[in-house]
């Protein structure tokens, strides 16, 4: 029986994104978003960061993180609009916006990261 519902795969992406975000986002956001700007820790210099970013493993990992996080956002945001604002009747528009956004964001992430 070949029923092709996208839900299982979307859910897998959402779950993987949730796990990746839970594990990696807090430390990155804390360092770059708060600790360095406020001077709690001295920010690393440009050369160091550039060398880290140029490492292929970093690129792949960051790209994966961005992609999964975006699909995680897309899935949750879609259901938040469905349930939290009771907009389920707009489900097609909402799905296009959310998952389309995630795809577009992932492409952008790829362009930024792999051009370094």
């Amino acid at each position: 029986m070949a029923r092709r519902s996208p839900e299982p795969l979307l859910w897998l992406l959402f779950s993987a994104g949730g796990m990746a975000a839970a594990l990696l986002v807090p430390v990155l956001l804390f360092l770059f978003g708060i600790a360095f700007p406020l001077g709690w820790l001295s920010a690393p210099d440009h050369t160091h960061l550039l060398s880290v970013l140029r490492h292929p493993a970093t690129k792949v990992i960051l790209f994966g993180l961005c992609l999964l996080c975006l699909f995680h956002w897309a899935h949750r945001f879609r259901y938040t609009l469905y349930d939290g604002l009771r907009l389920k009747n707009l489900s097609l528009v909402i799905s296009l916006f959310c998952y389309g956004g995630a795809v577009a964001g992932s492409v952008a992430a790829g362009v930024v990261l792999f051009r370094i």
Partner: peptide, 18 residues
Amino acid sequence: ELSGVFIAWFVVFLLLMA
């Protein structure tokens, strides 16, 4: 559920930095 929005924001922030 709204935390998803901030995770998306983090991606934007990260890409701007990169």
